[in-house]
């Protein structure tokens, strides 16, 4: 049971799959079965994904500044940046 799998659950149709945790399993079929037993005992799921943990490519926390900070000083990307003159509707 050496392989680690990441488990994603879609709570109900219309929502996206969210990461809930991980599971050990020898293969994909067993990973789905184990994920069902461990993460969906109370009707939490309409759908399950299991992904080998080694397949996840993650950003390096040390690069977080370089990657994400450039977005922070561009307030003009948000509608609230703009002042709507009084008397203007439907904008």
């Amino acid at each position: 049971m050496s392989d680690l799998w990441e488990v994603f659950v879609r709570a109900r149709g219309g929502l996206h799959h969210s990461h809930v945790g991980s599971i050990h399993a020898a293969d994909a079929e067993m990973a789905l079965e184990n994920a069902r037993d461990v993460y969906t005992r109370r009707g939490e799921a309409a759908s399950l994904w299991v992904v080998p943990s080694t397949s996840i490519v993650a950003s390096d926390p040390a690069d977080a500044g370089e990657l994400f900070e450039p977005a922070l000083d561009k307030e003009f990307r948000h509608p609230t940046y703009y002042e709507v003159p009084d008397g203007v509707a439907n904008l």
Partner: peptide, 22 residues
């Protein structure tokens, strides 16, 4: 009792993220 097994597994998985194997 099945929940207790599940709780054990959530917690082992959380501990494994710190680099100690199951």
């Amino acid at each position: 009792v099945q929940d207790e097994a599940g709780h054990g597994l959530y917690l082992y998985a959380a501990a494994e993220t710190l680099g100690t194997s199951r």
